Computed example of a mutant assay.
Amino acid sequence: MLVDSHCHLDFPDFADDLAGIVARAEASGVGRMVTISTRVKRLPDLLAIAERFPNVYCSVGTHPHQADEEDGISADELVNLAQHPKVVAFGEAGLDYFYEHGSRDAQERGFRAHIAAARETGLPLVIHTREADEDCGRILEDEMAKGAFRAVLHCYTGGRELAMKAIDLGLLISFTGILTFKKSQALRDLAAELPADRIMVETDSPYLAPGKYRGKRNEPSYVVETAKVLAETRGVTLDEIARQTTENFFRLFGKVPASAAA
């Protein structure tokens, strides 16, 4: 079994084909999907999807692009929303200095609030970081000193220094279809180096379709293509990558049942 640890099933790209997308994922051996929140106020939309499909779960949180729009959402509010049985993580939250749609101060406030919620509940935080390695590393070290929390750096494209700092702090690293791109050799070199118990795969669909699907709408079933390249990169079989990344997922996302969905 594989897991798509990060997709966006509530996005309009999927509205007309949601049942088919979930069915294709399950037929491809993708046994769990986590549809990731970008706005707290849209949690009802995510819950409607997660409650409709037994193997779909969701997070709650504010993407850094929406940091100003949802500035001031507290850790307590996030913790309260995470009481729902289908909410299994916080985020995605973090820093994005590439687009900077959200102000840097609001992004950092939101990032720290999400970390506090993760620390209080034991649920993992899904971290978005882009072109912000130094500040992301600084905040992670600062917050970890206040008390441990669990997290994954999703869709990793940052440098080796931040990746190794995250590993030292006990965090995980997740890879998307970017790993399959011809110009991503440095990322593959990093993926080959990371500890086996710290890696996961995801699609970040509808974006970043891997390899042979490049330029098309991405979907959870395509996580298999990323897993194939990760296996080749690390010199192991696809079965081994599927086993390891799925085991890592269930260890991090402890609220997701490992047994077959009812």
Rank of each mutant, 00 (worst) to 15 (best):
I73P: 10
G61Q: 13
D68K: 09
L78W: 10
A50V: 07
D68S: 09
R39P: 00
D71P: 00
P54W: 00
L47I: 01
E70C: 04
D71A: 14
E51P: 02
D76G: 06
R52L: 01
E70V: 12
K41I: 06
N80G: 04
V79T: 09
D71I: 00
L43G: 03
A75I: 10
G61Y: 10
P44W: 00
L78V: 11
R42F: 05
I49K: 13
V60Q: 08
P44K: 05
H63G: 00
E70A: 03
A48D: 12
E70G: 12
T38I: 14
A75G: 08
T62K: 11
H65Y: 15
R52N: 01
Y57I: 05
T62A: 08
I49C: 13
V60G: 06
T38K: 01
K41R: 06
E51Y: 05
T38A: 03
C58P: 10
E70D: 01
I49A: 04
F53G: 07
N55Q: 14
A67I: 00
T38C: 04
F53Y: 15
R42K: 06
V56F: 01
R52T: 05
P54F: 01
E77T: 14
G61W: 07
V60T: 13
P64K: 08
D76R: 12
D45W: 03
D45S: 03
L46F: 10
I49S: 03
D71S: 12
P64G: 06
A75D: 09
I49W: 11
V56S: 04
R39E: 00
D68P: 01
Y57M: 02
V60C: 14
R42V: 04
L81N: 04
E69T: 07
V56T: 10
D71N: 09
E70N: 12
E77Q: 10
S74T: 15
E51Q: 15
L43F: 05
I73T: 15
N55P: 02
P64H: 13
P64A: 14
I73D: 11
A75K: 10
G61P: 10
L78T: 10
N80C: 07
I73N: 02
E70W: 14
L81P: 05
F53Q: 05
L81S: 12
E69S: 08
T38V: 15
S59A: 08
E51M: 13
E77W: 06
V60S: 10
N80V: 08
S59R: 06
H65C: 01
F53L: 07
P44I: 02
R52M: 07
N80E: 15
N55T: 14
L78I: 09
V56M: 03
Y57A: 07
L78E: 14
A67W: 01
D45N: 09
S59T: 14
V60P: 05
V40N: 02
D68C: 12
R39S: 03
N80F: 03
E70Y: 13
T62V: 08
I73R: 11
S59E: 09
E77F: 04
I73Y: 07
N55I: 06
L78N: 09
V60R: 07
